[in-house]
């Protein structure tokens, strides 16, 4: 079993970006298939519960055929044309591109989503500030706001109850959601202003160098994660170039 949950989120982010980078520059079914097979064989050993895996990756499985359909109908044409209607033109070329697109969306999307399943916001922020050296005031400010999501949900429920008590909850669902969303934004900005005063009062944003309660570790596992990402990308590219199907996107 691969203990992917324990890997530094920055390494997961990096590995996902590396794989994507190799797959973005080409549009062909060989590189996408190679990458997809390698990715699926690794994902199989990650020990993700099947239910969780399918639930989280469901949007990718839906998006892949839809994007492919768009390309099949409106993609660049070539070879025999099978069907033509207004802007729609299905041809050998567009069918081939659609197949490549389908596999490519899966190959880019699946690892991107799977690598993000187990990321905890606090670990992510620690990694971004300590490892990538992003400005700590901004990273911790964002983390504080992310931690307020639970409060947002409570507020939303309170707003709903308040509107129901006033007897204005049953009129036009869309308008109600928009109005309630705006009220929530006002509430959260007010709360953010208060929070910033509290943070400043405790020395946040001061001039003394920051120390960290939780150290963001970087060791062999993180390097291996990055190297595996690199290897998948290189393997997909090499196989595609050798079979002569590697196609640069801006040809």
């Amino acid at each position: 079993m691969i203990p992917i949950a324990a890997v530094n989120p920055v390494a997961k982010l990096g590995a996902g970006l590396i794989v994507s980078l190799f797959l973005i520059v080409t549009i062909d079914w060989v590189s996408a298939t190679t990458a997809l097979l390698l990715e699926l064989s690794i994902i199989a050993f990650m020990g993700i519960e099947p239910r969780r895996f399918w639930l989280r990756t469901l949007p990718v499985w839906l998006a892949a055929p839809l994007t492919a359909l768009t390309i099949m109908l409106y993609g660049r044409y070539g070879g025999d044309v099978y069907f033509e209607f207004l802007f729609i033109r299905i041809s050998d070329g567009s069918v081939e591109l659609a197949l490549a697109t389908f596999l490519r969306v899966l190959a880019i999307g699946l690892p991107a989503v799977v690598l993000f399943i187990s990321i905890d916001p606090t670990d992510f922020a620690d990694g971004l500030a300590q490892r990538l050296r992003l400005p700590d005031r901004f990273v911790l400010g964002a983390l504080a706001a992310v931690r307020m999501v639970g409060l947002f949900l409570d507020d939303w429920r309170s707003l709903e109850l308040a509107r129901r008590a006033r007897g204005v909850a049953d009129r036009g669902r869309l308008r109600r959601v928009a109005g309630q969303g705006f009220a929530l934004l006002v509430l959260s900005i007010r709360r953010g202003s208060k929070l910033s005063i509290a943070m400043e009062a405790r020395g946040f944003g001061g001039d003394t160098p920051r120390t960290w309660a939780r150290e963001s570790r970087w060791g062999a596992a993180e390097w291996i994660t990055l190297i595996v990402g690199l290897l998948i990308g290189v393997a997909a590219t090499v196989v595609a170039v050798l079979t002569g199907s590697w196609t640069f996107i801006a040809r």
């Binding site: 400010g141 964002a142 504080a144 706001a145 947002f152 959260s188 202003s193 910033s196 946040f204």
Partner: peptide, 29 residues
């Protein structure tokens, strides 16, 4: 120059917008 309140309120607006993104991610198709 960014004050602390700028950072925190910008983050709050960002996070609130992110939640709207999540709804739109599903509803957009």
């Amino acid at each position: 120059q960014w004050r602390v309140i700028d950072i925190v309120v910008a983050s709050v607006i960002g996070v609130a917008s992110g939640l709207i993104f999540v709804v739109w991610n599903v509803a957009s198709s």
